[in-house]
Design a protein around this nucleic acid. Structure first.
Lengths: 163, 163
DNA sequence: ACCTAGAAGTTGAAGTTTCAACGAGAGAGA
DNA sequence: TCTCTCTCGTTGAAACTTCAACTTCTAGGT
């Protein structure tokens, strides 16, 4: 109940680091999203979905796995895939062996768009983040956020689930 | 046109770090937002606005400065402050000396809420991020994102501005 | 076979952010 | 003073996400 202040609050440097992280992330994600939209008329989320699909041998993935891979709610994936289907980047097919299941499949057009958009995206990531840090420092960032993922992954579910 | 692959793409470890950062950030911001909403019925954005206001001697800040401090669009600030005004956390007053200007002022109720919510928020930041890394590693994160801010800050404007 | 708990995915409404356009005032220069 | 350009902040619609409810199907027990 009466923990000392420095057990509760962040010190000045930690607080500064936290703010830099929040602001930097806000600016970075905003920028990467805009760059993709302007160059290829696709959002960062849609781009990331295409990346995951492209990593599968058949270019397809169950909706739930897509949601887990991106840490998005299932509802969000449903809506986003619906939009992408309407622009011809993916299609929906039934999953074999589970009649509840739906597979999102990348179309040829989706694959072409990804091939085009990938250099734009990677250049942005390099220019606005990776290229600004030493290799070692960037790997530290990766290490820290690996732990964040581990800590927060269990217990992350769709909003419909109990908590 | 024919740059070597490793001039364009990230290597495996960099890519892994990038994904950890994206996923970790998604999970982290989602979690911090939920914790504040559940405990105090306030979003992370609203919380951050209250923090900035509380740092001013008179608890008020021009809309534009608020937008800049949070790296949000002016439109977003307008909408968010409107919601906060309707729940009694802030009020709007005219800025002196510039009849275009609007000040967002923290109410007493806003200040009380912030005092209550701050421990929740800081505990979350500690538990899900700061406490998972060594002090040195976390400062590296801050250093990296400081550079990201510097690089992206100039040229960050409201969506209405030319680009 | 039957029942039940839970998972998969969708739906539509509510909430939030972005986008483009706008009105009003400030400020510099002729 | 007049005018031109720019900034401030807002507006309402479109785009996107969250939320809660729902249907369908699976899987495990009896």
């Amino acid at each position: 109940m009466s923990a000392r202040k420095d057990d509760i609050w962040l010190d000045a440097r930690q607080q500064q680091a936290w703010r830099a992280y929040i602001m930097g992330t806000t600016l970075l994600l905003d920028r990467l999203d805009r760059e993709l939209r302007q160059a290829w008329d696709i959002s960062l989320i849609e781009y990331e979905i295409l990346v995951r699909l492209s990593e599968q041998p058949d270019g397809s993935l169950r909706m739930a796995l897509l949601a887990d891979a991106l840490c998005h709610s299932r509802s969000r994936i449903t809506h986003t895939i619906a939009r992408m289907e309407s622009t011809g980047l993916v299609e929906r097919t039934a999953a074999e062996g589970d009649r509840r299941g739906v597979m999102a499949v990348m179309t040829e057009r989706g694959r072409e768009l990804l091939v085009n958009a990938a250099p734009t995206h990677v250049a942005g990531v390099r220019e606005h983040l990776v290229g600004l840090a030493t290799k070692a420092d960037f790997l530290v960032v990766g290490r820290v956020f690996d732990k964040v993922c581990d800590q927060l992954m269990q217990g992350h579910d769709d909003a419909t689930d109990i908590r």
